[in-house]
Design a binder for these strands. Structure first.
Lengths: 225, 225
DNA sequence: AGAATAGTGTCTCTGAGACAATATCAA
DNA sequence: TTGATATTGTCTCAGAGACACTATTCT
């Protein structure tokens, strides 16, 4: 028996909304392994770091996303022996899912602009390093599933938002159109999903009420895709 | 920067039903680390092994459970720096959830009877090695959640079962009583959840129809707890 | 006024849950 | 027959979805 020694990577499927379309952060690899290929942002755990800490650090370093306003959760771990043929050491990736609002600072936040926000449809076509295409697909499916039974949609939005914007998150992530009337009732009818601020926002038509995210984290009953 | 080197463990929350009560497999540790303490079954990945392969191997070695009839899925990964203070090397645990039918062979299957099936209520009280108490809680919550929207309940049963037995799985895992009439309709009304074999089983009262698991894996709409 | 967006009313249909009623066996 | 378990019937209520309608702004 030979006990395995491994390096641990924290990789991130970072999603945001830009112009009503779902985007994922991709980087061009600078390291020797898979050099120049497109990949998910991420990197190796350092001494004393947890996987979550490493994920937050890589998000800041590579994507320029600060922790506040980013919702991060563990996705799954990829440990197949042949997933990284470029190192002699086994590389185990603890993948994370990060949901972020596309705040203005985000775009220009990083000193070297390593990360690019790519529309997911395009990212799915593009060849990615290692098994990152699989991780991306799993992350997208998790994000889609979570909208059904959790209040994570608000993570894609700034602190204050209108009902149309919230509905826009669902429509962008699921790729469907939702009835504004029924969506409105559903959200309002779920205690703690959103809180009315009393403010209004004026645009092309009738002004919209402005909401903030509430305390609730679970949707019961869920919203069906 | 110091890149981390780690050992990878595959640990397993193995659940089964015995006498209408949910049990989890626990082992008394023989290794030097946490010697003599109660722990979840599991062990280190060997060269060339994936996490899933290691989990299946440990299930066979420590619990005497052969792969067929066991449903295994990845649960989460535990990588905190202080989760294992007994080794100098970082130990990262890829935890798995295993659901098994309590077949007769299971009980006496292993040469050394290392593993014990412990009622979950009791296991939750017992001090466990490392962070295994946390992993156990997470595994239980996952198992409970999965029954809502997936057909995993059949994994707790032999290939042929009655509707009462299937209902018993839900009642044991959720710790609630369900209306037999409504449960029956709900299951029958979900295409592919179960398939009638045409056989009957006789017990104390009216004979029950015998079913087999169907092709479906998801329940839509879900069964609510 | 007309277009655009926000939000309400209302109807229908499905499914969950409570619970009564019937079916079929063992003892 | 009685008791136990299985299965079907029936009623009510909540919520999803379709869609007509009203409200309030901009151009």
């Amino acid at each position: 028996m030979t006990r395995l020694t491994a390096w641990i990577a924290a990789d991130i499927v970072a999603l945001t909304l830009r112009g009503g379309e779902l985007h994922v952060a991709l980087v061009r690899r600078k390291a020797a392994a898979a050099h120049g290929q497109w990949a998910l942002p991420g990197g190796f755990l350092l001494d004393g770091e947890s996987a979550e800490q490493a994920a937050y650090r890589e998000l800041a370093e590579e994507v320029g996303l600060r922790g506040d306003g980013v919702r991060l959760e563990q996705l799954a771990t990829y440990a197949a022996p042949d997933r990284d043929t470029e190192h002699r050491t086994r590389v185990v990736s603890v993948a994370h899912l990060a949901l972020a609002a596309n705040l203005p600072e985000t775009v220009a936040g990083t000193d070297a602009d390593e990360a690019h926000w790519v529309p997911v449809a395009e990212a799915l076509e593009r060849p990615l390093a290692f098994d990152h295409a699989t991780i991306l697909r799993d992350g997208l499916e998790r994000a889609r599933a979570k909208l059904e039974y959790a209040t994570t949609a608000t993570a894609f939005l700034p602190p204050e938002f209108t009902m149309s914007e919230l509905r826009g998150v669902y429509e962008a992530v699921w790729g469907v159109r939702l009835d504004p009337a029924n969506f409105n009732r559903k959200v309002i009818g779920t205690p703690g999903f959103v809180v009315e601020t009393g403010q209004q926002r004026r645009g092309r038509g009738r002004p919209a009420s402005v909401y903030r995210a509430g305390d609730a984290t679970r949707l019961n009953p869920p919203i069906t895709r």
